[in-house]
Design a protein around this nucleic acid. Structure first.
Lengths: 138, 138
DNA sequence: CTAGAACTTGGAGTGCACTCCAGGTCAAAT
DNA sequence: ATTTGACCTGGAGTGCACTCCAAGTTCTAG
């Protein structure tokens, strides 16, 4: 009734379809990420199908956060490689994350400025639409 | 010494190179935007070279704001078409801008959440790096 | 046991937003 | 008169991040 087989020793695993559902990525994209080295080779069932572990899910969710904040695949590859290289790279990873965080802060700041400028433009259009409302403001 | 010729009647115009410099877009991109209909056909010199007016500059700067806030070329095309269609479309343009502004607000919000989550991850890494800070710093 | 759904692979195709190129024109300087 | 450099056009090429496909294998329900 469930997917217990050759490899599972009590660990709950997800098929690629289940992973896709939980992460919002397509199965194709999950395979693409793995091929690209963003995800370490996933464990397989006896019949060679992918079985994702909970740690894989956590990692993909973290990747999605990096992606959502504008990190390129290439940069995620670098980060994933550091992670794969083990605990000795923690300092390096911290540097990467701090840089990314700082760039993100800047981008949010700029976005907010542009939002403000857009608000002005919108005000301008609104004024165009209400030509002479006599008792306007005050 | 300057670019006064056949078409100019006191109006200051910019060559495509000058436009590129002022907007940060490449000359190629400026031509591409015009071909795509983002910019209305620019006036030409006697020798068929583009001469951008101040209003063109303003418009391109506005386009850049839309782009910076994530608007696609296709959506900018729709907006540009409304603008080209004249004053009767002001209400439509206002709707588009408001929608864009609202999506932008949401995206900033999400980005900020992701930034917060990144901060937590960074804290996590920092804790990994200072295992027994006994008399570490100070 | 078998049908059909879900999975596998390598590789081709897509959409976006440019970016580059070849071959030609035009203007200014030597 | 010619060289130099900025500009013109149409169209091809690029990089990114997927997305789709064909042909074959595996899994699961009946």
């Amino acid at each position: 009734m469930n997917s217990e087989d050759a490899l599972s020793l009590g660990e709950e695993t997800l098929t690629i379809a289940q992973m896709a559902e939980r992460t919002g990525l397509s199965a194709d994209t999950l395979r693409y990420y793995e091929k690209a080295g963003l995800i370490e080779p996933v464990r397989r069932s006896a019949g060679n199908q992918r079985r994702y572990a909970a740690t894989d899910l956590d990692w993909v969710e973290f990747l999605l956060r990096l992606r959502a904040t504008g990190m390129s695949i290439a940069d995620m590859q670098r980060f994933a490689r550091l992670r794969a290289d083990g605990g000795a790279t923690v300092a390096d990873r911290l540097v990467v994350l701090r840089e990314h965080r700082s760039g993100l802060g800047e981008r949010i700041r700029v976005l907010q400025q542009n939002a403000d400028a857009l608000d002005e433009k919108i005000d301008h259009y609104e004024r165009l639409l209400s030509p002479q409302p006599e008792t306007e403001r005050t």
